[in-house]
Design a binder for these strands. Structure first.
Length: 295
DNA sequence: AAGGGCCTCAACCGCTATAGA
DNA sequence: CTCTATAGCGGTTGAGGCCCT
């Protein structure tokens, strides 16, 4: 396929934008809205290529862009999401309102990467640079410590819905579309696939909890809102205080959408990480090294 | 004060994904 | 199915500002 040159036309201006150019672009977009970037420059009276206009708008001029320093909470979120997603700046940006992928990428490269290095952590793997080989998913000879908080949460879910609880139902619970709860409540079987699943979830949480070098991340996980139908405010509050690690939330979301169950409103789950986690947990379970039985 | 090196971040480049003709 | 236009993404660049000597 022959690609159309984007910015190689004669007379196309490059480099820093002037305030006058910004004004022209803003005025045009306020009048006509976004889109039609290829023809926009000519219509707006700009000697720029459409791509340049789109980037200028997306990364700088958009009214909902939050400028200024990153907060400690934003720092934590970026670091944690980077550990989960890698250099997926656009995906990370969706969790930080008002921040662009470009801004986050720059901030990572100029600040957070260095900060991790100063802490002796590899900014790519987020593990200690002089690690003895321990990684997040290979603790077979390094049994994790029991995490009572996340396990307790999962145990509550397990005991509440028992045998019928599966990924689809969990997805339903979280997205608020579940209709299976009453069936589940009739079951007293504790040695069930549900228990196994929840043990896996808990074990995954424990792994993250015990291998993450960070702590105290914000719990801005909207998916817990879906629990309102099934748990009291007090119980949900308890989830927030016991499941106090953003990574756990992310991983749980991932597990719930793993295997094509469909995650409803849950977005952008870390499929690869979760697949790896599940594979590991499965093998771990086979080896009878599960951290606990939460039934 | 000067100038050289470093740092930051807006902008660009090259590529892929996707939609539609 | 192929081709094209467009959008979007991540990596890279370079101008300008800052800091240090």
């Amino acid at each position: 396929m022959v690609r159309t040159p984007c910015c190689k036309e004669e007379g196309i201006k490059k480099g820093a934008w002037t305030p006058e150019e910004d004004q022209k672009l803003i005025a045009y977009l306020q009048l006509h809205g976004e889109g039609g970037w290829r023809t926009l420059p000519e219509k707006a009276g700009l000697k720029r290529c459409g791509k340049s206009c789109r980037l200028r708008w997306a990364n700088y001029l958009r009214p909902d862009i939050k400028r200024g320093e990153f907060s400690p909470e934003e720092d934590d979120t970026i670091i944690k999401l980077h550990a989960l997603k890698g250099n997926k700046w656009a995906a990370i940006a969706t969790s930080l309102a008002g921040r662009t992928d470009n801004e986050i990428k720059n901030y990572w490269n100029t600040n957070l990467k260095k900060r991790l290095k100063q802490k002796g952590l590899d900014p790519i793997t987020h593990k200690p640079i002089n690690s003895t080989g321990k990684t997040g998913l290979v603790p077979k000879t390094n049994k994790p410590v029991y995490s009572s908080g996340s396990a307790r949460l999962l145990n509550r879910v397990a005991s509440k819905y028992a045998v019928e609880l599966n990924r689809d139902l969990l997805t339903g619970i979280i997205s608020g579309n579940s209709t299976v709860a009453e069936d589940s409540q009739n079951s007293g079987d504790v040695d069930s696939p549900t228990s196994t699943l929840l043990n896996k979830m808990a074990a995954t949480s424990v792994l993250i909890n015990t291998t993450s070098p960070f702590s105290g991340f914000s719990d801005n996980c909207s998916f817990t809102d879906g629990f309102n139908e099934f748990f009291s405010n007090e119980e949900i509050s308890d989830m927030y205080t016991t499941v106090d690690n953003f990574g756990i939330m992310e991983e749980l979301k991932g597990i719930l959408s793993y295997g094509g169950a469909g995650a409803g409103g849950i977005e952008d789950s870390p499929e690869v990480n979760v697949a790896d986690a599940m594979e590991f947990i499965d093998s771990w379970n086979e080896d009878d090294k599960m951290v606990g039985v939460f039934v």
